[in-house]
Structure formats: structure tokens, C-alpha cells
Design a protein around this nucleic acid. Sequence first.
RNA 1: GGCGCGGUAGCCAAGUGGUAAGGCAGAGGUCUGCAAAACCUUUAUUCGUCGGUUCGACUCCGAUCCGCGCCUCCA
Length: 466
Amino acid sequence: MALRFYNTLTQQSEPFTPLHDNVVRMYTCGPTVYNYVHIGNLRTFTFQDILRRWLQARGYQMEHVMNITDIEDKIIRHAAAANQTIYEYTAQYTQAFLEDTATLRLQRPEHIVKATDCIDDMVSAVQTLEKKGFTYVSEGSVYYRIAKFPEYGKLSHNDFSGIRAGARVDVDEYDKADARDFVLWKAKKDNEPAWQTPFGEGRPGWHIECSVMAMKYLGETLDIHTGGVDLTFPHHENEIAQSEAITGKPFARFWLHAEHLSIDAQKMSKSVGNFYTLRDLVAEGHTPEAIRYLLASVPYRKKLNFTFDGLKAASTSIERLRNYKLRLESAKFPEGVNAQLAERTDAALKAFDEGLDDDLNTAEALAAVFEYIRDTNTAMDSGEFRAGNVAGGLTFLARFDSVFDVLKPTEKTGGLSDADIDALIADRAAAKKGRDFGRADQIRKDLATQGVILEDTKDGVRWKRQ
RNA sequence: GGCGCGGUAGCCAAGUGGUAAGGCAGAGGUCUGCAAAACCUUUAUUCGUCGGUUCGACUCCGAUCCGCGCCUCCA
């Protein structure tokens, strides 16, 4: 079966091919930079990383845009409290976001765009909507009239036909014509940051930035639009309403939504004290690879229950994978090729590919990897694994790691150099030869305390950093 | 109330009409100077519950219980 994704729009799994050539035009709702991103945000961003890596593995080129929301209520509030401009305030968290995603080995989208860099484009978009009669003004703010867009609700599968156009509904302080109408342009209040525009001083509503940036860089119809499930309504619904009102064309062909992450089966919240950022976890000694593995190993449409037991299990699984790779690279195997084993390797690789082709079923892909590892480890023990089978194994691991990217340990600063380690290993070998096991064990122990693990194999000593 | 997701071994989790993948943890064993790594065996007569369809259901249908998300800019 070919590559296919579950499309929120149609509520079905559909075969995927890009609209134009070999290029996938994809848009991702990025962070609002008022704080460090938390592990739940990163679940969604990790899903997007797996998605783009798999599309590339399948031969597509990415044209991927992610926005940075750097003008918004919370930002304004926090910046004011910190006595900073919104630019100063958001710069630090934008930087932190880029660092965190790099730590988690997330590929950078081709375009990362700040909302405040696209104000003019947003103003034009609102003007276009105005011209087409989709807007009205209330208390200086410009609103989108959803009654003008009959398809409203098609993404979230909500039926809004019961809401009568023109019915007067008072919601909070805003005087909207219809409860579902949303703001395109907010009139300036107090000392809020604002831009001078034909509709007066103000700032953009949240939804317009995504419509504008997506179309600016990717054209009127995107191949894929992604985000967390909570964005389905109203954010993505509103993006569709805006974009399709402007162009008259479908905004995005595929909508992919990542399910949420919970902590110990509870919603993450600061008051419960189970609110984790990547920085928190790394500071506690958890590796970025283990976190990445855990976030990636549960298929993206399934709720992910984050636990420290799970994180430990992820770490152990990575160890097993690395040990296997080390064995493949360092052990000596008899000459020749085991053709049957080579065939099974191909079959495992195929199963891996098919797992990911099936709406990024990472659990199935991983199962294929581990089945292959057990199979070939057994063959190595019995001598059936030949030198000619090494390349196939390495190819499979490379394929796996091009998507999961967990095999290479994160560099730790300081510590022993490779030469130091080799010298100590030589000392230990000499001690062992003289049957001085006490000294040999001591060296191994000392190295272990510095994070270097020695393993004696029949082909000699091998070592790895923890 | 509306829309959506889910309940599979101690934990995570795949499967979605033909008789329960995989990972972690646990138990026993092989190998080893010791350790590590690796391998083998073992851990769900059963897939929330109750009915129904079928030669056959975790998988389809109906009902029901439970958990969760969205429905005011939360990924």
C-alpha cells in the first residue's frame, strides 16, 4: 500500500501525493513565544518532524513553513510585566524554542516566519475580505462574518446551521453579530502595541497570520496543514474560512492533527506540578534521544501518556539499538553472504516502510526493527550471519535512524578523550593477561564512573559512552 | 448537549473477520575469570461489559459502563 494519511477533513485515510511535482508544501502552526515550550508542545512538533523526515525518505522535497506567533495577548501582558518591548520579550523565547527543537533533533522547516514580519500582508488580506463582503466592524475591530461562509464547520464537523445570521449574541465585551464570528483585526486598547492601518490603529487577530503566511510562501492550496488536535476548532476552521473566502480555492488538501500528551494520565498543568519543559527533563539527566524516542514511538493520533517509567523504557530500547549497531560494526563474521538472511532483512525493511506509509505507524515500524534485530542477533550467535550481511543491516539501521534519529548519543562536554580510553583499555588488557583481575576490574569500574562502558566480546574489547 | 478520541498482559502499544506484533519490566536458563552484551524459554484460552450477525469477531452491528479532548487565542 502506498503512503497514506488520515485526513481530518474527510475523516478517512487517503493516499498522499503532492499537488505539484515532487514538492510537498506543508504548513505547521508554530509556537506562541511567551514561555518555554513544554513536552506536550514538543510531542506535536516531533510528529511533524517524523512526518517531514518520512516524506523525504519517500523521495519528496519539503517546502515547509512554520509561524512564530510573536504578537498576542499573553505576550503583551508578560512583556509589559517584564518591562520589555514585545520584541525583546519574544526574542529570548524564540531563541529558546529554536534551541529546544535542535536539542530534540527536529529538522528546521524551510521557512520560519514571525507574525510581526507579515503585518502588511495581513492587512491586505483583511482588506480583501472586506472587499468581498466577509467582514464588519464593531467597536473599531474588524470581524469575520461566518454566516457568509456556508462551509464553516467542515473541518471540525460541527453543524452551525442552527446559528441564525444576524442573531444578536453578546459574548464578553465584544459586540459580535454572531457568537462564532471571530476577530480579524483588533482595535488598539490602552498602551497595546499597534500598527497604523486603513481600519485604524490595532493588531492582527490570531487566525489571520496562519492563512497569510501559508499562502505567501506556499500558494493558495497547501498539500498538508498540521497542528495539535485542539487547533482543529476554532483555529483551523477559521483559517479555512479566511483563506477560502479570499481565494475561492481549497486551502489545504490534507489536515493532520496530533493527539495530546498527558502526564501520568493527567492533563499537564502548573498547579498540579506536572508541567515539564525539555529543559527540566534534560536537567534531571534524561537524554534528548530518550525523550525523542518516547514522543515518536506512540503513533501521533493516539494519546500519549508520558511517564518516567516510559522514559526509562525508551532509554533502554535505544541502548539495545545502539548495542546492536556496535555489534554489527565491530564483530567479525565469516566470509560470504547468507542469502536467506538477506531476504529477511529486505522483508524487515519493507515492513518498516509499510508501517510508516500507513499514516506514520511508528509502533509498527519499530516492531519491524526489533524483530529484525532479534533474528540477526540469533544468526550471529549461531554463526549463520556472514560478513556479506553487514551492509544490509547497516542500510536498515540508517533507514531507521533517518526517521527516528536516536542512535547517536548527544555529545557531552568534557570527560575522557578516545585516546585516553584506548590507553586505559590497553592497561586493562595487560592486567588481564597477567591474571590481575582486580586491577582489570578497577579500570573498568573507573571508566564506568566517567560514563564509559567496556564490554569484552570474543572479538576483543568494545566500548561506548553512556 | 454537540463534535471527536480511546478502553488489548505489571507498564507502553500493534492488529481491525480466520484464531493475540513489538518494546520495557519480572522469572528461569545458555555464554563469561567476573561483568556487560546477546540469545533461548516463560508471563493475555483472551482484547471494558452485555447482547446480536457469522462456520468463525479483539476486529462487523446494537446497547451499555468508564476515561479523555474540543465546543472563549491551549500543541
